[in-house]
Simulated assay, not measured.
Amino acid sequence: MTYTIFGEQFTPKFSLPLGGELSPEDFITIDLSKKNPDLLNGTTDDVAGLHAYVFGKIEAANAKCAYGGYAEKRDLYQRSSHFADSEDFRSVHLGIDFWMPAGTDIVAPMPGRIHSFKNNDNPGDYGPTIILEHHIGNEKIHALYGHLSKVSLPGLMEGQLINRGQKIGTLGIPDENRDWPPHLHFQLIKDIGEYKGDYPGVCHKKDKKYYLENCPDPLVFFENSWSKKMVS
């Protein structure tokens, strides 16, 4: 299976950015969009309610991880002023979320280098964040890892080489990941511009076309054994 990016045919080469022994059967999909009727009763409006909902689904399925969220229009961001402006709030999610327990190891899905890192500590923001730079053919693509633990950042250096499968951090708790249940926000970015340690992970509906073009669906980049399970 191949996909076109930067005008080139690309065969998925990414392994999962999650440590530990995992198989496709350990994953379930989860819908956190405004279309999900389960989210209409207000029980997921705070971090405790959202945690109970997501991790309850994982437990009920006897799974280890819930994933999803690319291009979802979510009402979850209304609870944070960080996503609002004078007219509207940002609601279109630009990455994929992997919901797993705090402390889960996060690893590089392919070789690269550290582009930048930062603790984005606005309410509802990413918290500790690492961005890696990878090469596909003659082009670069950046991978953003958000909602990490604070201990993930000390000792990092921009330009530091990272091997495929190398641990780069761990998932944070709500107090450090800016009030979210533990999860990894994984986002690919073609043109990162001047951003360092940060990039919009949620956009306004009016800007959806630009951002979804610049931030392709991460699921199609995973190796075929995973993408057959995840993309279907």
Rank of each mutant, 00 (worst) to 15 (best):
L50N: 01
P101G: 09
I130H: 07
Q166S: 09
Y210K: 12
G169R: 06
G127P: 07
N36S: 09
P101C: 08
W226F: 07
N177G: 11
Q9E: 15
Q166V: 01
P174V: 02
D26P: 00
E158V: 02
G127T: 01
M230L: 15
E176Y: 01
S15R: 15
P216L: 06
S152F: 05
R74H: 08
D46A: 03
I5H: 11
R178N: 14
L171Q: 04
H204C: 07
Y3Q: 08
A60G: 03
D31E: 06
S81V: 05
L184P: 00
I5F: 13
A61L: 10
L148C: 07
S91G: 02
W180M: 02
P200W: 06
H135V: 10
A84G: 13
A71Q: 09
D46E: 04
H135D: 09
F89Y: 15
V220Y: 12
L156D: 03
S80M: 07
N36T: 10
I162H: 09
S227K: 15
L50S: 03
P154Y: 10
F6D: 14
L212R: 09
P12D: 02
N224M: 06
I28V: 15
F6A: 09
G124A: 05
R79N: 00
D217Q: 08
K57F: 12
Y67M: 13
G193A: 04
G112N: 02
D75N: 15
A48T: 14
G172A: 00
S152G: 08
A60V: 06
D88A: 10
V54H: 00
L212M: 12
T4K: 15
D207L: 06
P128S: 07
Q160K: 11
H185T: 03
M1G: 13
T104Q: 11
W99T: 00
L40W: 11
E87S: 05
G68L: 10
D31C: 06
R79M: 02
L132N: 10
H185P: 05
E87R: 07
G124K: 02
K167V: 05
K150L: 12
G112H: 00
F98L: 03
G146I: 00
E87C: 01
L156H: 05
T2D: 07
N163H: 14
L156W: 05
S91T: 04
G112K: 01
H134T: 08
